[in-house]
Nucleic acid binder design. Structure first.
Length: 260
DNA sequence: ATGCCGACAGGATGTCGA
């Protein structure tokens, strides 16, 4: 099963780019982030035409996550536990039946957290701690699980072009990196790093300052696999070329293949 | 030291992203 994650930065602005990529990449499951629309305005028909079922946890203007799947989507659950007052649409979970077993997938859109030292940064860390708790609960099922999305965390200095340039940014704070590591330390593995040790492989390039042309990127979109999913991992890659197309998102898709 | 670009809401320009 080919599964993927992509922060599209508005699903409506990216509809043409998204359908073109789906036709060539042909993933079985795609987790989308920053769809920036409500459930009722999500362009489901365009994806259904390509054979996808859609689960949507939307929000007007900001955030919003979705899961597209060629297989049925069961147990569809929005929101992370523990944030009853949190109105941001940043998490959506579903169960996808595979050939041999089920695969639990989650579309993850962690908060940006800038500027550091504000309530936004505190919200980011609290949100990642809620994610860690949910990730711990999922491990108890002892089933293949993939928590995929925009974590807004640069894991290591080798995941950005210039660590000094990002030193003051919420994405590269020691606390942010530790929060991501705490999820991994439960027993989840970064699928990309399980397949590729090359440094300076990015998933995001800013629209500004010619970041794409200069390859000034960062790796912040991650696929975290449970042990049962990692055992079935056969490939993982970043579809970098998508960033060079017309009207691109500032993020590109990351995908992996798991034999479930 | 700051903006650079882009999407959105709304009808000018501010907010947000990373």
């Amino acid at each position: 099963m080919k599964i993927a994650t992509w922060n599209v930065n508005s699903v409506k602005a990216r509809l043409e780019a998204a359908t073109a990529w789906l036709k060539e990449a042909v993933p079985d499951v795609v987790c989308l982030q920053e769809i920036k629309c409500t459930d009722d305005t999500f362009p489901a028909a365009a994806f259904e035409e390509l054979g996808y079922n859609c689960a949507v946890h939307g929000q007007k203007t900001y955030n919003g996550v979705a899961i597209l799947s060629k297989r049925p989507l069961e147990d569809v659950t929005p929101r992370l536990p523990g944030g009853e007052a949190d109105e941001h649409a940043r998490y959506l979970e579903a169960l996808v039946p595979g050939d041999k077993s089920v695969l639990r997938v989650a579309s993850v859109y962690a908060p940006n957290g800038n500027p550091v030292g504000t309530e936004k940064f505190a919200y980011k860390l609290a949100w990642l701690e809620r994610l860690r708790r949910r990730a711990a609960a999922l491990l108890a099922f002892e089933e293949p699980a993939a928590l995929m999305g925009d974590y807004n965390v640069i894991p290591t200095p080798e995941d950005c072009h210039d660590p000094v340039a990002w030193a003051q940014d919420a994405l590269f704070q020691p606390e942010s990196r530790a929060a991501l590591r705490r999820v991994e330390n439960l027993g989840y593995q970064d699928a990309f790093r399980a397949c590729n040790a090359q440094p300076y492989q990015y998933t995001f390039w800013d629209y500004q300052a010619g970041a794409w042309q200069k390859d000034h990127g960062i790796r912040i979109d991650h696929i975290l696999l449970s042990p049962q999913a990692l055992d079935r991992l056969t490939a993982c890659a970043i579809d970098k070329r998508v960033r060079g197309r017309d009207k691109p998102s500032d993020h590109v898709p990351v995908w992996c293949e798991v034999s479930v």
